[in-house]
Design a protein around this nucleic acid. Sequence first.
DNA 1: GTGCCTCGAGTTCC
DNA 2: CTCGAGGCAC
Length: 705
Amino acid sequence: MRPVSGMSEPEAVAEWAELVQKVLDANVAYHRDDAPLISDADYDRMKGRLAELEAAFPGIARAMTSKSPTAMVGAAPAEGFGKVTHRVRMLSLENAFSDEEVTEFDERVRKFLGINGAIAYTAEPKIDGLSLSLRYEAGKLVQAATRGDGEVGENVTENARTIADIPQHLTNAPDVLEVRGEVYMSHADFAALNARQAAAGDKAFANPRNAAAGSLRQLDAGITAGRPLRFFAYAWGEVSQPLAVTQTAAIARLNSLGFQTNPLTVLCDGPEAMLKQYRLIESQRATLGYDIDGVVYKVDDLALQARLGFRSSTPRWAIAHKFPAELAWTELLGIDIQVGRTGALSPVARLKPVTVGGVVVSNATLHNEDYIAGRDSRGNPIRDSKDIRVGDWVQVYRAGDVIPKVADVDLSRRKEGSQPYVFPQVCPECGSPAHREEGDSVRRCTGGLICPAQAVERLKHFVSRGAFDIEGLGAKQVEMFFRDASLPVKTPAEIFTLAERDAANPLQKLKNRDGFGEVSAAKLFAAIEAKRVIPLDRLIFSLGIRHVGEVAAGLLARHYGTWAGFEAAITHASPGSPEWAELTAIDGVGAVMAQSLADAFQNPAERAAMDALVAQLDVQPVAARGAVDSPVAGKTVVFTGTLEKMTRAEAKARAEALGAKVAGSVSAKTDLLIAGPGAGSKAKDAARLGVETIDEDTWLRLIGG
DNA sequence: GTGCCTCGAGTTCC
DNA sequence: CTCGAGGCAC
């Protein structure tokens, strides 16, 4: 590549224009056609060069950068779309795969609510498209957003405006109304679109879902307008006034506001009726004219829905009853072992590519060594104890329509002289012994940070979304720096000395490398610099300590507040010590997690890496508790005796939603005891300790209902 | 001790 | 998304 410094402006413009076209073509191939034209590395290189040209010739930038793909931020999931934070989280649904699981769902709901009689549920087809949230203010469509990760989605307002089923204006709607539903493409429209694609020499879409997703995510809304997308409304997010008192009535209301709602939505009086509707919908599946992948059941009474509330990522009042997964047979070409950040050795099946549910699958997970051998972790036989051998014909499916898995083996086609797979006893990456602990289903490499696979996976975790989340430093860049001879990054601390080391390196500066330019190198250094200031919870999560995920890291950070406090406590924690007692007293922290933390902090190599890292950082303390505005926020409460207005599970969920901590027994830390009739020893304990005790009605008044 | 509810870890394909 | 397992209530 020619150095930009020796180029004239017209030459630069010519190269720039050519590159823009190539990048745009690649974008179309990747996003619309799901068929990459070029490798990711080449793509990144082209974008880097574009940025370089634009930086060296500001004229280009002023005149045309708005057209340039560099204006569409790189790497991150939201290429070219703005981000939208959902005011009400877009959750996913719990899945059921059998009739029993549906019956259990109903039992669970009634148990939670303490209702013995029947409860009414709606049943509706689960459309196989992509969910979309539409925000209306004063009756006008102001924003459309994809689901994203449920918290943050992409702003696709302009594209949504081109969909005929989506009204631009509503009359008699609440001031604020967020309608949720599914964007999909009908079979007929999908076939016609693919015929057009073929006529134009473009690649066909694999299935209607991909076609709908690709069409909605066009950067040019003009292309979306030419795609026959449809929309069914089935839920809502933020509303300024309630839509109705039942799910059925709310859907009818959405329909009268001008939305398409699914005509197969019916009200059922219990599991029997739900399953009947499931079979009816399943029997009509082939003739509906659009893809569905199951049936969704929802508690009809919205007041009950509110009482049931949510678990961490799914509502308690709904479930998706999925149709059986599509299966396909193919040949197992080989078994590779991958090493994860905790050292776990995971076998991956390399398959002769096969289409399953409209997607070509060439890899599948084999879980662990027992799964290959045909036993579960308790030693019980699975797949009739058939083991899986290289060369076998295997049946694959996509679990939850996503993750490819091997379900079965065809013994009649097993090749003569095939041998059972021998699981490696040493790490294939570093050669250290791989041990399997009693009762554990995974075998782990014992190399720790010595193992390059573990080290690089730990680094990837370190820069991942919930951890340091450094823009421009993703998995791919981490791999590159890890293997780099002149500017290596082998430990998290080394990320923060990157700029300094680059400046001190007279040859081969980062900005002169393939894939980087002046601008991108400076941007990366700035992004790293910005993350020197880091909240304690993110730091703890980023350490990648086994059993300590995002939630546990948050608990620990909130309990200890500062790095100094946390570090001192864990360093001295061992079974029997006061630090250990304090640690395991945290709600959600048990002996296993405590031991894992202690092991990490008391291991000299791990500890050295941690200290070097923290020396580079400005760790922000974390406040004790989220500022929930309620009289019980931050209080520790205990329930005892018989609760008459709600079940124990419900009482606990509501108290926690209001920021209270619910404990099982009364201690000096208890702030409030809610005692129903029949309270025994706990009430005595409370009296002895001087803990305030109230009855259920007083409690309900206190929390407002 | 048993059973429920979550979380954590690992995985694929786009 | 699923599985295994940790943590806790009963």
